[in-house]
Write a protein that binds this DNA or RNA. Structure first.
Lengths: 108, 108
DNA sequence: ACCACCTGTCAGAAAAATCTTACAAGGTTA
DNA sequence: TAACCTTGTAAGATTTTTCTGACAGGTGGT
């Protein structure tokens, strides 16, 4: 089971990258897109985008759904999920209390 | 000059680390402390804490002030600044527009 | 002088994140 | 068949972040 602190940490790590901020921007502004198209829009390689998208999806900030286009091609569409994270000294301190210990034998 | 996107990115990177979340927690819960004392509380080495504190301070999330104790010793006290960052798809997309380009010859 | 604190910083190791290149496979169209 | 689009992934290099250990200096007390 993942604690609130661990989930906050994962979300922060997912957002703390310029490419991933731009990915959110592109999906939020232009709406849902598939991977190759998004790679062209942002201007990065597709394998690299794939890595960033996985990080965002693992953190629960975006979702993907495989769809078939009219021509029968399988396109993987991504869209932003409606997250809402408030960062204040109090909320951070509160979440930090439930962080997993740094020991080696603790992660689930 | 640092854009809103760059400042958000710096804040996110500063918070995206378990040690630094714990630092915020300790300072917020127990109030202001000096470096060596904080290192003992959290259980990390002083040079390592120094590194994390610098990152938090660069991002504008904590401040430090050198003070003289009653015994005349110079103690460097840290405290949390009252930050308030809201993370939503809209706010992130908005900030991402002002991110510095990834080119090599752009940082000021 | 010595010990016990405090401060900072530097060099190098270790770990994690990032990025590129190349491969493998599917479908559609000519 | 070949060309063009899509998908994923794996290996290896590069870069960044994290961490340790050692050093240097300050003050106060024994």
């Amino acid at each position: 089971m993942k604690s609130e602190g661990d989930r906050l940490l994962e979300s922060l790590a997912a957002l703390a990258n310029p490419h991933r901020l731009r990915i959110i921007e592109a999906l939020q502004t232009n709406g849902r897109t598939y991977v190759s198209q998004l790679a062209r829009e942002i201007g990065i390689s597709r394998p690299l985008l794939h890595l960033h998208l996985r990080k965002l999806e693992d953190a629960g900030l975006v979702t993907s759904r495989l769809e078939l286009s009219d021509e029968g091609k399988a396109l993987n569409f991504y869209e932003v999920l409606p997250f809402d994270i408030a960062l204040t000294p109090t909320s951070v301190a509160d979440a930090a209390q439930s962080l997993s210990p740094p020991s080696k034998t603790s992660e689930a």
